[in-house]
Computed example of a mutant assay.
Amino acid sequence: MKPTNTPLPLRILSRSHVQSLLTMQDAIAAMRSAFVQLAGGQAMVPLRTHLRLPLREAEALFMPVFLAEQQLAGLKMVGLHPFNPAEGQPFIQASMLVMDALSGRPVGLVEASLLTAMRTGAASGLATQLLAPEQARVLAVFGTGAQAPFQIEAVCCVRPIEEVWVFGTSVEKSQAFIARQAPKYSCRFYAATELKALRRAEIICTATNANNPLFETSHLRAGVHINAIGAYRPDMAEIPPEVVARSRLYVDQREACLKEAGDITQAIEGGYIRPTHIQAELGELLLHSGKGRKNPAETTLFKSVGNAAQDLACAAALLKKAAAREVGTLVAMG
């Protein structure tokens, strides 16, 4: 953006705006931009600030970020409120404030709960595009929560998926999830009743709050690609350390994953791998060969804990679309 004497209005975009304007293809393209800037030193992402609020056991997270390509700075704000669901409100409340980095004027305020789910799915979509077998047709998804639909959508954007196997905490939950999701796709959905069905999968997405691994090495077929987006704390784990050790491992951001990702930290603490087992960040892969799979039989693993650069890249794409279509609520800030 070029400096201007005309005050830029603040554009407010609701969840419905995010849903109607931002496509998964848009989000995957935004992830490519975010990860390349992270790896190339064009992004600034300081450590997040975590506040434990003295009201109703709530927590607040603040995540600042700057992206040079977009010439924007942002602040993602997340509230975690455990009493909300009982009152009919979401447990997680999130918003993204976007600022023109050249003038310092705020230009956007975006509802970020849906934005977060979409960018998380899009990261898996980009990783799948770079790492999974090109003709992979069978997807397995662990989890039936808010993240799972976007994992499916993103993978279906980049691979010709024909079968989706859903592994929920119960068959009933899997079937209910399928009833909601299957009408959106031409592929066939199945509720898995036992882990041996996992051997069909060429791509696996794990989107759970599991504290212990979801499967064993023996359940995997040769050449599988795994996107692991749960286990965002050191005490959590979705992937067995033996699988981490045998996989060609890629991450969204090395420093964050070595600190926060239980799948990786527990494998290191158990002596299965060293930090150098991480092959590259996804952005490093994009900046160099762009090819992360060396042979058809190897297991590839993408581990993500999320990053505010992803949120800002998506918000920037969304605000650009909204301005072109003249949607959202405009507020003059001065």
Rank of each mutant, 00 (worst) to 15 (best):
K294L: 09
A228S: 15
M77N: 07
L258W: 06
T128L: 00
M63W: 07
V224G: 00
R246L: 12
F66P: 00
L318N: 00
A148H: 06
V138I: 03
H81T: 15
Q181F: 01
C205M: 05
P234W: 08
A60G: 14
G328S: 07
L139C: 06
F302Y: 14
V78R: 08
P133Y: 09
S218E: 12
K303S: 06
G230Y: 10
G328R: 02
Q89T: 11
G143C: 03
G328F: 01
T169I: 06
I226G: 08
P296Y: 12
I264Y: 04
I204H: 07
I204T: 00
Q151C: 05
E255T: 14
F215S: 11
L115E: 01
L318Q: 01
V171E: 15
V158A: 07
V78S: 10
A146D: 08
M77T: 13
L286T: 04
S304F: 03
Y232M: 08
E284M: 06
Q135L: 04
E172Y: 05
A308Y: 02
Q135G: 00
L131A: 07
S124W: 00
L80I: 13
E281F: 04
M96S: 03
A256V: 12
V141L: 13
T144W: 08
R274P: 00
A192Q: 09
V331Y: 10
K184D: 13
G168N: 05
M99F: 14
N209D: 13
F83R: 14
E260T: 00
A322H: 03
T193L: 13
A112F: 03
A117K: 14
C314H: 00
N212T: 14
L80W: 06
T208R: 10
V78W: 10
C187F: 12
A191E: 03
Q135W: 00
L21W: 07
G306R: 05
G104C: 01
A332G: 01
R233D: 13
G283R: 07
G104I: 02
E153A: 10
L114G: 01
Y190N: 15
E153Y: 08
G283K: 05
C314D: 02
T299Q: 10
P133L: 04
P3V: 10
A317Y: 06
E194R: 15
P213E: 11
G108E: 03
A86C: 03
M1P: 08
T120S: 10
R159A: 07
A313K: 01
E216L: 08
L38H: 15
P240L: 13
D252I: 03
L139G: 03
S20V: 03
L47P: 11
D26W: 02
R15Y: 05
A201W: 06
G223Q: 02
Q93T: 02
V18K: 04
Y190R: 15
N84A: 09
Y232G: 00
A101Y: 02
D311F: 06
C156D: 03
L198Q: 15
L258R: 08
K184E: 15
L319V: 01
A154I: 01
H81D: 13
I239V: 11
A127N: 08
L258N: 09
L109R: 10
G108T: 02
T193D: 14
S20A: 15
F150A: 07
L55E: 14
P296D: 11
A101L: 04
V141T: 09
Q37Y: 10
S20T: 11
T208E: 09
M99C: 11
Q147F: 06
Q175T: 09
V244C: 07
